[in-house]
Nucleic acid binder design. Structure first.
Length: 915
RNA sequence: GGGCGAAUAGCUCAGCUGGUUAGAGCACCUGUCUUACACACAGGGGGUCGGGGGUUCGAAUCCCUCUUCGCCCACCA
């Protein structure tokens, strides 16, 4: 009976209390706070968070995204970099405005009832009160962001950056106001960029409409359209000038049904003769392509659908909308018009038609093309720089295949509509003179109060800027740009951007463009695009499907480390993470189990090592180390090397561009986690810890060596694991005798390889083989697991000598009393061949099933002979011997010789068994 | 319509520039409550590398083709 050890750990790991204890201590001690002054002597490593919407609630996607960032930032922090992870939120213009508008609607009002100022105030209050909660939720999963630098895209500081960017682009001639057809969401009441108008594949209808010629009612032309309601705004019918069917009609007029408007037939190569009827109705105000055609033919632009999607005579459309149709919603109008057309005999046919329809990315409403004045950014010059950054190797994207997608998008870049007709956001910094004095619009960094021309009053542009116009500045606006702050100097450009591929265009490519344009450097050298969190049917987790998992539930049930482990262990490069929302146990047990195992390893190891000081491993005399000691230290070195190779390189070797050799390496998080897991579990716990037990029970120098090696190996394991499972590793690390006081593993040094190889580690490897061989024999012969057996290791004298101490130590692992011999004692025994000509003989008189043993050997021999046959065939092949590299041939010959020996030994054994 | 990617063990995936007896984790089967851990330990089964053709002494790996999935882009009236 042992007295309770005051240092002993609780028998089970309590994630909740550990997490609650360590996180505040880390922040209180500034563990996550970066110092620009220190960046002079330490390589900075910077990640900016993809800012979640300020009103967002943490979901698994955030969990995955932020775990990845945290693993990288914790890794680099330990590696000695001045690591900075900038956190913050996005004001999310349309999304946030929608939330508050819904609240107001519940009160029976619209934003227009409140007025602009009051509404904006109301949203600001809402954000103040409930916003940013997601950042606290990130803390509960262990995110080690520098909270002293928490940023917000709509803060006064970042708003200044936004104005600076707008004005500077205007000065550069890249911001302009354009009059054209843009994507319009009638529900949100704003224009959208191309990226915000998402395609959805739809089975729609293709309506064929007959327009009668004005001067010859016996003739007509049929147009095909998916949107018959727009016919009220038609100004022409376009046919391909080379289309013989219609050539003769070009220049003639047709009469629009329903409103009787007379419009021309024009020739334009835009029309594809093979599509539909080969004739296209042209509605310049309600279709971007038609707008271009209209411009070419100097056609009018009557607007017959208003901002709410209501059909009426909006502008330049007098006499075009019959009274019975005016005031109808666009979809109601479609039905009504189709009916009227049919009644008028103008409807030729309706076909099913597969096409993609654009929807608002915020509310899923079908987007309406709308002619309006908007602010645009001319993107070509920006895109050229972003393309150059990738081509020169200043920037890389992982997985590699996304680079092609990035290039493809940038090469076909279109101008960016940055104005939105909502109220929540950065107001366009442009002012107009109220007294039409003729002064040009004033684009200004500071508020303008009077007209520089006539000193009269001015009014600011009503529009606000696209949310992404502030987030594309995030990598430097968060560091104080346009001021040349110490932060900006020290931490720009950053290093890695971690996000999902969905926002590659929205955000990532645009950040590269803005960084290259305003600061002449890409904002990071690596874009890491991780997969998506999906359910077991491979469906994206979403609120509407109800297949989501709340990360906070997982933290509560399994702990933050278990959550993180599950994410990282399953995270191949660019691979989706599959989780079962209906069975959290199945999804997160591996993470929880790993933490429990780690806890038990620590609990046992710490109880045996005890609190007394241990010697540093470097101070130990190599000769005093056992083969097992050398082995585990080498395994630690290998694990360190594997982790480094999986995660790194952290940055290009020459700091400015990737070489081809290093370009696609690193960021293999699952490989890193597996390497660390294998070391602590399969090597340290399964073998070293087991083999070292007897030594720990002794007194004296050997025990001290074992304690030192054990403490050192576990220390290394904890350090390697800290980035993935920061809480449990911190808790355990604090208990190691060699841990300095007032230190945190979160800022301890990342382990480095000792580079002290010793041949004796190989001896331990052979001993492991022997143990496994004996265990296999026992298991296959159904030997009572508790029973001890005898085993004889047969081999050359030299090996036997080296093996002796090892076998004494690990005999217990196989429950075998091991002796060494030069000759195979023969007899009724199980016999296993090891590498190096060593045999293990288990003479289990009475315990062994001879038939079974014969069977096993025969199977092994048959397998070996089959492979040997193939190998010998290859060696007999003249082509192989003549053409294959000599080294390969040599290796194959050696292998054949080895196999022949082995086959011979197997035959001998079978003969000895009387087969 | 264009482009890209994937197809390897029941599941999720590694296998880099062609030369292994094709791997890992999980799942599965058998045994064990062995004094840290049954959330564990020990042992084990399982793949003609999507089909077909080609190049080569040699192909999971390179080429062609077919099939099936996925992603991105597009001026799909």
């Amino acid at each position: 009976m042992t007295a309770p050890d005051p240092n002993s750990l609780p028998t089970t790991y309590d994630a909740a209390s550990t997490e609650a204890a360590w996180y505040p201590r880390w922040t209180e001690h500034g563990v996550f706070t970066a110092d620009p002054a220190r960046a002079a002597t330490h390589e900075p490593f910077v990640i900016v968070i993809p800012p979640p919407n300020v009103t967002a609630v943490l979901h698994m996607g955030h969990g995955l995204n932020n775990t990845v960032q945290d693993v990288l930032i914790r890794w680099r922090r330990m590696a000695g970099d001045e690591a900075l992870w900038v956190p913050g939120t996005d004001h999310a213009g349309i999304a946030t405005q929608n939330v508050v508008e819904k609240q107001i609607a519940a009160e029976g009002h619209s934003r227009f009832d409140l007025g602009r100022e009051a509404f904006v105030q109301r949203v600001a209050q809402f954000v103040d009160k409930t916003g940013g909660e997601i950042l606290n939720q990130l803390k509960s999963i262990g995110a080690s962001a520098d909270w002293t630098r928490t940023a917000y895209t709509f803060s006064p500081e970042l708003s200044r950056s936004v104005r600076e960017a707008f004005v500077r682009l205007h000065e550069d001639g890249l911001v302009y106001k354009g009059h054209r057809v843009i994507h319009w969401c009638p529900r949100c009441g704003t224009s959208l960029s191309d990226e915000e108008a998402e395609f959805t594949d739809t089975t729609g209808k293709l309506y064929h409409l007959r327009y009668v010629l004005a001067d010859d009612p016996s003739q007509s032309i049929t147009v095909a359209t998916t949107r018959p309601e727009t016919m009220l705004g038609d100004v022409a019918v376009a046919v391909n000038p080379d289309d013989e069917r219609y050539q003769a009609m070009i220049g003639k007029d047709v009469i629009l049904p329903l409103n009787g408007v007379r419009i021309p037939i024009v020739g334009d190569t835009y029309t594809d003769p093979a599509f539909g009827s080969g004739a296209v109705k042209i509605t310049p105000a309600h279709d971007a392509n038609d707008f271009e055609v209209g411009k070419r033919h100097a056609l009018a632009t009557p607007v017959i659908i208003d901002a709410e999607g209501i059909v009426r005579e909006v502008e330049g459309a007098a006499g075009r909308v019959p009274a019975e149709l005016s005031g109808l919603d666009r979809f109601a109008a479609r039905k009504a018009i189709v009916n009227l057309l049919e009644a008028a005999g103008a409807l030729v046919k309706i076909e099913n038609h597969q096409h993609s329809v654009r929807h608002c990315y915020r509310c899923d409403t079908v987007v309406e093309p709308r002619l309006s004045d908007q602010w645009f950014v001319r993107m070509q010059p920006l895109a050229d720089k972003a393309l150059a950054a990738l081509r020169t190797g200043e920037l890389r994207i992982l997985p590699e295949r996304w680079e092609a997608v990035y290039v493809n998008w940038l090469e076909g870049i279109r101008d960016w509509n940055i104005s939105r007709q909502i109220w929540w956001g950065h107001r366009v910094p442009v002012w107009y003179c109220n007294a039409s004095c003729g002064h040009a619009p004033i684009v200004s960094r500071t508020d303008v109060t009077s007209c520089p021309g006539c000193n009269g009053t001015v009014r600011q542009d009503e529009d606000v800027l696209d949310t992404w116009f502030s987030s594309w500045l995030w990598p430097f606006s968060t560091l104080g740009w346009p001021d040349k702050t110490p932060d900006l100097r020290a931490f720009y450009p950053g290093d890695v951007l971690v996000t999902a591929p969905e926002i590659l265009f929205f955000w990532v490519a645009r950040m590269v463009m803005s960084g290259c344009w305003f600061l002449d450097k890409a904002p990071f050298h690596t874009v890491y695009l991780h997969g998506t969190v999906r359910d077991m049917q491979h469906r994206k987790m979403s609120k509407s499907l109800g297949n989501g998992i709340d990360p906070l539930d997982v933290v509560r049930l399994y702990g933050a480390d278990a959550l993180r482990w599950t994410m990282v262990a399953g995270l191949g490069l660019g691979v989706d993470v599959m989780l079962d929302p209906t069975d959290l146990e199945k999804s997160f047990a591996p993470g929880r189990n790993f933490c429990t195992k780690l806890w038990n390893i620590g609990r046992f190891l710490l109880s045996r090592v005890g609190p007394e000081p241990v010697k540093p491993v470097a101070s130990l005399d190599a000769a005093s180390l056992t083969a097992a000691d050398h082995w585990i230290l080498e395994r630690l070195d290998a694990a360190i090397a594997d982790c480094d190779a999986a995660l790194g390189p952290a940055r290009p070797a020459d700091l400015s561009r990737w070489t081809d050799a290093e370009r696609y390496r690193g960021l293999r998080l699952s490989e890193y986690a597996e390497a660390a897991r294998r070391f602590v579990w399969n090597e340290l716990a399964d073998w070293y810890l087991e083999s070292v037990k007897p030594r720990l029970a002794t007194e004296g120098d050997d025990r001290e060596v074992a304690r030192a090696v054990l403490a050192h190996a576990f220390d290394g394991a904890l350090r390697l694991l800290q980035p993935v499972v920061p809480f449990i590793t911190e808790e355990l690390w604090q208990k190691l005798p060699q841990t300095p006081p007032n230190a945190f593993i979160a800022q301890a040094a990342w382990p480095v390889v000792r580079a002290q190889a010793s041949g004796s580690a190989a001896v331990f490897e052979q001993a492991r083989e022997a143990v496994q061989a004996i265990r296999q024999v026992r298991s296959e012969n159904n030997v009572n697991p508790g029973a001890w057996v005898d085993a004889v290791v047969v081999g050359p004298a030299a090996s036997r000598e080296a093996l002796t101490p090892v076998i004494e130590t690990i005999g217990g692992l196989a429950r075998a009393r091991v002796t060494l011999a030069e000759q195979n004692p023969g007899g009724a025994s199980a016999q296993v061949l090891l590498s190096g000509g060593i045999e293990v003989v288990v003479p289990l008189a009475g315990m062994i099933d001879l038939d079974k043993e014969k069977q096993r050997l025969q199977t092994e021999l048959a397998q070996l002979e089959k492979q040997l046959g193939a190998l010998e065939g290859r060696l007999a092949n003249e082509g192989f011997v003549a053409k294959a590299p000599p080294a390969v041939v040599e290796a194959e010959r050696a292998k054949a010789a080895d196999w022949r020996t082995r086959a011979g030994q197997l035959r001998d054994k079978l003969q000895a068994l009387g087969a």
